[in-house]
Write a protein that binds this DNA or RNA. Structure first.
Lengths: 197, 197
DNA sequence: AAATATTTCCTAATGGCCCTAGGTTAATCC
DNA sequence: GGATTAACCTAGGGCCATTAGGAAATATTT
């Protein structure tokens, strides 16, 4: 009987595809094994546990999202870069809802695996380089990066959870929200007197 | 043998407490039943399924969060109200991480139950009333409300997932981010020429 | 107060899932 | 080709969700 040719990456990919199709919390060892034409016990040669698998899906998603953002922002600057960055983020979440959901799981990921992963780190670095165009000094830059990430992640999450009633298309609020963010970054307020930095 | 005196609300509360203690996805029928000193099968007289229970926890959380925000913002206006609103939101997420996580599950909630719940609707209404102080006209007001909710939810989620490296305390980015949001709301940019509203 | 109806909670059972242990067989390396 | 490594399997234990149907406590009616 020939072998299926499994590997940790192939198991992860199957899990990721399944997550996009049926939702992250319907990704089970049994279902992934079925998709690969294999018995569930066979997966444990490549993946430590279901939690481990979910962590790997999260890291895969981080890598893919980072690549998309890098490609989208390459050669752009200023507001162009901002919009390209944000659109790439949102589009990834739309195209891969299950993978994206995996990125939200609190960091119960195998530390060794996490250390070898470049996706999350590079995503933050990309945000920094994009925002550097706005001439913010630390610690404002860090605060702006965090605000930016909060907006993108929050909008996309609420959208996915059906949080925006259908009155006004989410797309339009998105465009206008990015306009507003751009304006804000150009006029980032100075710390108020009396507040510690 | 005396009875436990269960009801849908008591089961939901036990589930919510458990969610805060051990995380939402460790909330199982069996665990809730143990906590209530009851057999798991007994819960099905009050709750349709595990999914139903999670939906009820989400609605409970929405109600509680709304009440906290309402109390915090009562009698305040302008930036005071904004900060009180945001802090109440974030504090609820910190105090009740499991309940808060439940609010993120896509709306697979029993529609009939949802219709009777006032929490989610009132939370949005409160956001509208708070932002009305900034003299925005529709559709800008709706876009601002959505941006606001995105920031709050996104920040709190990233924080809970350990998304902010410890370099700079999240608290400080939070305060400065709210400063920035306030400024933005005071100077909300007009739609750019050529763009459809 | 007695009889009835209702509801709560139980026991029993099915099937699915995660995961471990230990055996076979296919690929790989000399 | 023979030995080693690894992939994949069978078997099984334990936990969980859910249903069906029975017994006992409460509520309702007379």
């Amino acid at each position: 009987m020939p072998r299926a040719g499994l590997t940790a990456d192939r198991v992860t990919l199957a899990g990721a595809e399944l997550a996009d199709e049926v939702g992250l919390d319907h990704v089970t060892m049994a279902a992934v094994a079925r998709r690969l034409g294999v018995k569930d016990a066979s997966l444990y040669a490549h993946v430590r546990s279901l939690e481990d698998l979910r962590g790997r899906i999260a890291l895969l998603a981080a890598d893919e999202k980072t690549i998309r953002i890098a490609e989208a922002t390459a050669g752009r600057a200023g507001k162009d870069a901002l919009v390209a960055f944000a659109d790439a983020w949102r589009r990834y979440a739309h195209d891969h809802p299950g993978r994206y959901a995996a990125t939200q799981i609190p960091m119960q990921i195998d530390p060794e695996l996490l250390a070898r992963a470049s996706g999350p780190r590079r995503a933050v670095e990309l945000t920094y380089s994009m925002l550097r165009a706005y001439a913010l000094d630390e610690p404002d830059l860090t605060d702006a990066v965090r605000l930016m990430r909060s907006v993108l992640h929050g909008f996309v999450s609420l959208e996915a959870a059906g949080g925006f009633a259908h009155a006004r298309p989410a797309e339009e609020s998105w465009v206008r929200g990015l306009d507003a963010l751009h304006t804000l970054l150009e006029h980032w307020p100075a710390p108020r007197e009396g507040d510690p930095a």
